[in-house]
Amino acid sequence: MLFRTLKKKDLPRLYDRLSDGNRIVGPTVKGAEKDGKAIYAFEEISDFNNIHLDYTSTKIPAKKFFMPFRETMASFRMKGKEWDKMVSFNMNSPLVFFGMHACDVNALNKLDKVLLGSHYPMPYYAAKRKNMFIVGIDCIPQPYCFCRSMGSDTALHGFDMFLTDLGDHYFVEILSDTAYNFLRQITNEEPAESDHARYMKVAAEKNRKFTAHVDTTDLTKILDMEFQADVWKKWGDQCLSCGTCANVCPTCYCYGVDESVGLDLSRAQKTKLLYSCNLIDFAEVAGGHNFRPESHTRLKYRYYHKHRGFVEAFEESLCVGCGRCGESCLAGITVPEVIASVRGEES
């Protein structure tokens, strides 16, 4: 890894270089909550001044750009007795993410394991993932963030460059030669000894700010032991089976496929729709049998996939601790509370 520093006043110039011929996506303000707190969203940016690098976290994760909520996988058209099939991976032009937090970079790395690294990679994901450039940015832990418990508070790979705010300049980690070549075009410096010291101080300060935690010690085993625990029922009774948690989760990748025939009967379309294991028919199979008809069995499944199944397959959990699911759940179901209750702890 290569380290440089960049004066804050030169950041717009980096933006200009990156946006030359590329689409830029960054955190913007989408609205305000009733108490006045800003609501942030990743959106396409056309003006550097609309990027809010001091954002907390976005309600909807960046996954919408490489796993859209709805995506056409193929369309079909009858031509006499023949038919045409059109497939597009829906990658129009490369995307530059300007200001992604470590948790969200790590979420992408986890998705890569399944969607790029498995026997059958997902081309719709790969096309977009392979054509993006990521500028990471450091963050201030919010009351709901427990990324540190999940080992996702720093990103080791999966980005091109990562900025850490040191006051009047940024500490820049460079991971790709693309990033190196971009940075070469603007003024930047070799970090001084004092910058290293300052970086470590900033990191230590950040670590002290975490208030939410999840104890992952022996968690896969504990989940095995507590499969029949009563607490699941309690959470299940609260759950609305609404799917919001999966929709706002940066690592949930489940989807359903809808096939529809056009009104003129000469066209058809296959559409991918993101789905959630909390929805009532997630585990319903042909013939109508539902393996998880009760809400608590579905909610439990979500936790087992994230904190047990995925860990056994990839030696890491499918949760980066961003806290989005708990923040958006109207029933107030949060990961730290659920895990603590399964461990028999008061949270």
Binding site: K30, G31, E33, K34, I39, A41, K59, I60, K64, F69, R70, L240, S241, C242, G243, T244, N247, V248, L273, L274, S276, L279, I280, D281, S328, L330
Partner: peptide, 21 residues
């Protein structure tokens, strides 16, 4: 669909009405 409206609402990236009070 057997699921509730929230599912489509999130796909449309709406701000939740409860956040707006």
């Amino acid at each position: 669909p057997r699921y509730p409206v929230c599912m489509e609402c999130k796909a449309n990236e709406n701000i939740c009405l409860y956040d707006l009070g």
